[in-house]
Design a protein around this nucleic acid. Structure first.
Lengths: 218, 218
DNA sequence: GAATTAATTGAACGTTCGTTTTATTAATTT
DNA sequence: AAATTAATAAAACGAACGTTCAATTAATTC
């Protein structure tokens, strides 16, 4: 046998991507064999190598693609929010909704960092830091405007990221709560963590400016 | 060659356990080969099978041992705390201190659940649930005594577990903060999440009893 | 319709995997 | 000191691994 009737490079490539995500998320990158992957796609193992030079590049492509999509989606979403408080709530809602719909990507992103080559790992780690820093920037901003009262910005950022990412470990679509309900409850918990409250402002030069000293601890 | 001078089953077994923890934590269970492990121990691959029937039982033994130690240590530690507030703070401090000193165990516990056989996985999942439920019980208790004001107990429990376990991802012993300092900051954040505050009590039948209705949301 | 390019198969490569078997020697018991 | 048990080495097992190569056929271009 050789080329099959109806074969199409584009379709095969995306079939590989889809199957790879399922397989890597389920059994792990190391445990997934190329023969397993080929079976899932319905093709011989050798066919894979027309689309990727090797197994490692497949993993990197999956993880890189996910991070690119996360960053682009948040970039777009964040434009609708203006105050730090609004941005903070928007971030939590975005993070939860976006990731709940991409469980495989999230799982791979959390579990397979160590399976990347050092060079590839550095790239993913950098992209992830960029995303997490966008939350940190919101906290910084909210402290300046007196919207938030936070003791340690770095730790609070990490705590919130861990808290909202941990959802993916237990969430099932048949949960007692919908994704939106869960998101709202986590927004509430997030607000507690950043000490958010409505604050007094005063007009100064035509703009609302917060009253009182910056609060760094509650 | 055969039995080596000075060879001792007890020492070899613990050398295997130590080396296995390092290796599995670093490269992952699937990626660790028995030859790698044997090299680390300074022995031939076949020697391993005197101590474990196979690779899977080694992984299970490592994970089971860790969970047993966690549960026993918290059991002992929790006896020093009495009110829900005290127990809550004690839990967070215990969790952070205990796990920071056992990074390899924590990493293995988080990453290698899927490498366990279904039967073994069920056992570990059950032990983990038992541990996490001890936090949930504290939150339940604190709501009854009006020490805490929590909207959703199950979600708050998960949020706190995720928050304090996430520390192991980034913590390094040369961090700007010591473990104890980090623990105190996370206690503060935990208290925000459970809405803890000093509450009014009234004497009733010789005991302090909280005043006012149970608060289920802030 | 001939030439070229795209997509795939089938077979094989050398390597490594977890594990078993057998032999051998050290330590312990009798 | 003989017999027994404990602890290992050395070699090999078949199976599976990621990957390469040559052959073959479908689709496209000229």
């Amino acid at each position: 046998m050789a080329r099959t009737t109806g074969s199409d490079g584009g379709r095969t490539r995306s079939a590989i991507d889809v199957a790879a995500k399922h397989l890597i998320a389920r059994v792990g990158y190391e445990a997934m064999s190329m023969r397993q992957l080929a079976d899932e796609v319905g093709v011989q193992p050798a066919a894979f190598y027309r689309y990727y030079p090797n197994k490692q590049e497949l993993l990197f492509s999956v993880m890189r693609g996910h991070m690119d999509r996360v960053l682009a989606a948040w970039e777009a979403e964040s434009r609708n929010a203006h105050t730090a408080l609004e941005k903070f709530c928007a971030f939590i809602r975005f993070h939860i909704r976006f990731h709940v719909e991409r469980r495989d990507d999230v799982h791979i992103g959390n579990m397979e960092l160590r399976s990347l080559s050092p060079e590839n790992r550095a790239i993913i780690v950098e992209l992830r830091a960029r995303y997490e820093n966008s939350l940190r920037d919101i906290l910084d901003d909210g402290i300046d405007t007196r919207e938030f009262a936070i003791d340690d910005i770095a730790l609070t950022t990490r705590a919130i990221i861990a808290m909202i990412t941990g959802i993916m470990v237990w969430f099932r679509t048949d949960d007692r709560l919908s994704v939106d309900e869960i998101a709202e409850k986590y927004v509430e918990m997030g607000l507690r963590l950043v000490g958010a409250k409505k604050i007094a402002t005063t007009k100064k030069g035509g703009r609302d400016v917060p009253v009182g000293p910056k609060i760094r601890s509650l």
